[in-house]
Nucleic acid binder design. Structure first.
Lengths: 238, 238
DNA sequence: ACCTGAACACCGTTCAAGT
DNA sequence: ACCTGAACACCGTTCAAGT
């Protein structure tokens, strides 16, 4: 291939290289062309790696090998990026293919949902924006359809759908927030603070979530069972 | 009072007024001296009036009649202001004075908690930071103490405390987020979007939360009942 | 002990201009 | 159709300096 020689020659001279080499020599390395999908993808990995307050249009653009202002051709605003990122990770929540009964189906959905929230801790804090992306809607659809097929009617239907959603969201928010593992110095400080004021908070100091590594999983499962039992009773008693 | 005359005279001349009048002529009008409490108080009213993304150290300082940098004497960081504001509104949650039974007590606490979240919609989004303020802790203490007195033991105790908290938090977040009343154009747009794709989301389009003004209150109450029933069964069956 | 001003290192976003 | 650069109107925070 003589092209490589021509290339290096062009690079050695300060002037522009050969025409047919220039467009393929992309920004950073061998980056695919910029696109909305690529932006959102990169946003998710940036969020996963550094958290929500480190996501900046400038930093995001830098990772993509462009200027920050270029992003605005593909995306209207930073909030759009966040909305798109939030919907993208929802695609990871598996929708049960074949039914094993409504309780099992819903449990699978909710567990998957929770897993995603914990896998992408930044997402829990973003739940305060209305979620209307296709991936979110598809999973809401599954939830409603499953409840309807199980025989739920109003007001139990809405209460069930909301109750389940709110429960996962709250749980995900709490656990994602909680200083775990790395941020253990914060947890320890909280623990000491509680012990120092244990005359004010005796029950909390003795049994509170700050004292021991909480068993989030069984706690979550227990609460979910209570909710599902209630829904089931509502259906049976129509 | 001759002082008023002296005052106006001093103001008319461009030079400094009488010594004993100057210190009492505060920044804006008759503002009390700056203090941490006053800053947090003003932050809450600013948040209530304009929302979280309009809270700025500069704007907050302006309302208080100072420069933004002055705030940093009383407060270490903007996040501190948010933490303090969050704890301040928790003081509005009434802790039941005399017991009417554990279910009634807890229901009262949770309902009060929810009411605060809805009264200060910005607060729901801030729940992603660890809450260790005195007002928050006092209410957590009440929750744990009540559950303990009712006879809850592990793992039901933790599951109950978490489940209830997560449920209110999630509900508050969702409802505070939801485009209600004023932001009705967004809700209507969501509605149309759903109808336009109703072959993809049939259950959602027919029964989803977007179709009708949701009855949040009864939905919330129903879900809370399910949770409490589950907790009660756990206690009874020890 | 408290307040001020200037300054630093950032932000999101717009827009005329390039190819 | 896509990308660039300069520019605007902001941010949170620090710090030397004032009283």
């Amino acid at each position: 291939m003589d092209i490589s020689k021509a290339d290096s020659g062009a690079r050695r001279s300060g002037t522009a290289g050969d025409v047919w080499l220039r467009p393929s020599a992309r920004k950073g390395r061998d980056a695919p062309p910029l696109s909305r999908d690529r932006i959102v993808e990169e946003a998710v990995t940036l969020l996963d790696a550094e958290g929500a307050d480190r996501l900046t249009m400038r930093r995001l653009a830098e990772r993509l090998g462009t200027g920050s202002t270029t992003l605005y051709w593909h995306v209207k605003t930073k909030d759009d990026v966040l909305d798109l990122a939030l919907d993208m990770i929802f695609a990871e929540v598996l929708i049960p293919a074949e039914s094993r009964g409504w309780r099992a189906d819903i449990t699978a959905l909710i567990d998957g949902w929770r897993a995603v929230l914990l896998r992408h801790p930044w997402s829990a804090a973003l739940l305060s924006r209305p979620m209307l992306g296709p991936n979110v809607l598809a999973r809401s659809e599954f939830l409603y359809a499953t409840l309807l097929r199980a025989g739920a009617v109003e007001p139990h239907l809405t209460a069930a759908a909301y109750g389940l959603s709110n429960y996962v969201i709250g749980s995900g928010l709490m656990q994602a927030t909680w200083p775990t593992g790395a941020g253990q110095e914060a947890r320890q400080a909280a623990q000491e603070h509680l012990r120092a004021h244990q005359e004010s908070y005796p029950a909390l100091a003795a049994h509170g979530p700050h004292v021991a590594e909480a068993d989030w999983d069984t706690g979550f499962a227990l609460g979910l069972t209570w909710l599902l039992d209630g829904i089931q009773a509502g259906i049976a008693g129509k």
